[in-house]
Amino acid sequence: MITPALLAALREAVQPDPLGQPLPAARTLYPGTRSYCDIEFEAPEGYRPLLLDVHRPAPPGPAGLLVYLHGGGWTRGSRRRHSLPVAEITASGFALACLDYRLSGEALFPAQLADVQAGLRWLAARGEDPELDLDVSGAVLWGESAGAHLAALAGLGAPAGQDDPAQATGLTIAGVVDWFGPADLSAMGDPADPHTREARLVGGPLGERAAEARAASPVTHAHPDAPPFLIMHGTEDSLVPLEQSRTLAEALTRAGAEAELIAVPGAEHGWFGMDDTGPLVASALEFAGRRLYAGTPSGGNR
């Protein structure tokens, strides 16, 4: 007879609890940086295990936490697909955690948001391990495109399901850096087209999935206690119009939250058309430093 205890033991043998697993050995992938790669942070039943990488300054001491979410239209990409200057980020004293999430071909929204929340919970629970030595008193979320959309939702405490309250992550979200992310899905693309990136995320044409599109839109969740937002968007973006970021900044400001929008002249989606993105990175790091080290962060949920 299979008892509940035996069943639990079998499940643990096949898929151990990620919170209890040892960390991988540190690797040197970037100058002045210790990298802990391929950390399993969540194992949603019926799906692949989800992984994260943590890159932290090589010198000992607690490091401020930036959490990066990749782009790719929710259909492609991974935590490794980014152009961030990791060595520059760690030299500035920050740790960078890069998370995977399920893509829209694997699961419909809000699975992606639930995965981000799971990653934040793992970081809150394990971030103070001596090897990682992260300052988990707060975190700044940083995403681009689809990842910025998820960073905005997580920062705003959007629920990962219409019937479920926003799940506590154990981390205070001190700020959100939003690089050219969608903010109002109902205003993106042809509402009758079932093949748009947005339609594939919510499970059907936006005109037929209006409630789902609204729930998946950061503008829906703006509120006065939202963490500060730094929103950056190219004026020539042909995939996600600049108006998306304007709409989000206006919604946050109307709600009484803090939002700064920087329109980057001549930049396409992904900053194509720019010779030097260094100033954009510098602005993001300056914003993160102010939010993480200026006393008690505002907003977020524990």
Rank of each mutant, 00 (worst) to 15 (best):
A213F: 10
P182W: 06
G234E: 07
D276M: 09
A183E: 02
G20F: 08
R79G: 03
I39Q: 05
A210T: 14
P110H: 04
C37M: 12
W122I: 06
L29S: 15
R246E: 14
L141W: 05
L252K: 01
A210H: 10
T277N: 08
P44A: 05
D163P: 12
A139M: 04
M1A: 15
G64D: 03
A174Y: 08
L230M: 08
R79V: 15
F109L: 12
P228Y: 12
A257F: 11
G157D: 10
H221M: 09
D100F: 08
G299T: 10
L185I: 09
H55F: 09
T172F: 01
H223Q: 13
H223S: 13
V202Q: 06
T247G: 03
L239K: 02
A58K: 03
A174S: 09
H82F: 00
G270Y: 02
A174M: 06
P59M: 02
A282C: 01
P85N: 04
L108H: 14
P279R: 01
A9D: 03
L171Q: 11
F109S: 13
A174F: 05
A174W: 07
G203Q: 06
A226E: 02
Q15M: 10
P159K: 09
E106R: 01
I2V: 13
L206E: 06
V136M: 02
G203C: 10
D237N: 05
A166L: 04
P31T: 14
E260P: 04
P4H: 07
R214A: 15
P159L: 14
F41T: 01
Q112M: 09
M232Y: 00
D193S: 06
P62R: 15
M232T: 01
P59A: 13
A282V: 06
R48K: 07
P18S: 10
F94A: 14
E236S: 15
A146L: 07
Y293Q: 13
P130V: 14
Q162L: 14
S35Q: 03
E131W: 04
R197W: 12
I39E: 11
P191E: 08
L185K: 00
S298R: 15
L51Q: 12
L10C: 13
E198S: 11
G71F: 06
I2K: 01
G207L: 03
A187S: 14
G300A: 07
A168Y: 00
T277L: 03
L292M: 08
H223D: 13
E258M: 00
P62D: 13
D225C: 06
D225Q: 12
L10A: 15
P62A: 15
E260I: 07
A5I: 04
T196I: 11
L19T: 03
L141R: 09
W74T: 02
D133L: 00
P224L: 02
R126N: 12
L201V: 05
S35L: 04
L6Q: 13
N301I: 04
L96I: 10
P194V: 08
A43R: 11
S217Y: 05
E258K: 00
A192C: 11
L134V: 08
G147S: 09
P297Q: 03
Y68M: 05
A95W: 08
L99F: 08
P57V: 01
E128C: 13
A124W: 00
A5K: 02
A226H: 02
A91N: 01
S104D: 13
L65D: 06
